[in-house]
């Protein structure tokens, strides 16, 4: 059982790190503000979330687990809201998302999310 938990948690930790890493790469490589925000929010939600769950599995029952759970809840709430606010502020201040006409087709799917 312990080994199972361990393996599971490591899988989560590693995939979390992977998403964090892709988020960082995306932040640098994506063409415009909105797609970059998307990359950054992946880091916050999927990356940090998976890592936190992985850690929770490591922690076992106790106060630490509760604290990690709280951190997870708050980071999910806060970072998504912050990303939303950021994107909205950018839109309001006149920043337009890149579209087909500006860029090759790859930009489209990332921008339409917002």
């Amino acid at each position: 059982m312990d080994i199972l938990l361990d393996i599971l948690s490591w899988i989560l930790l590693i995939s979390g790190s992977f998403f964090t890493f892709t988020g960082a790469v995306g932040l640098f490589r994506f063409p415009d503000f909105f797609s970059r925000t998307h990359a950054a929010s992946v880091t916050d939600t999927l990356g940090a979330g998976l890592i936190l769950i992985g850690l929770m599995l490591q922690a076992g029952w106790g106060l630490v687990l509760a604290k990690l759970l709280l951190i997870l809840v708050f980071s999910l709430l806060a970072s998504t809201t912050a990303c939303h606010a950021m994107a909205k502020a950018a839109l309001k201040s006149g920043l337009k998302p890149l579209t087909y006409s500006d860029q090759e087709n790859s930009a489209e799917e990332t921008t339409s999310k917002h």
């Binding site: 709430l77 809201t81 606010a85």
Partner: peptide, 9 residues
């Protein structure tokens, strides 16, 4: 959205 989340937090 911000306002609602803030109210929760």
């Amino acid at each position: 959205i911000l306002r609602i989340v803030a109210k929760m937090m």
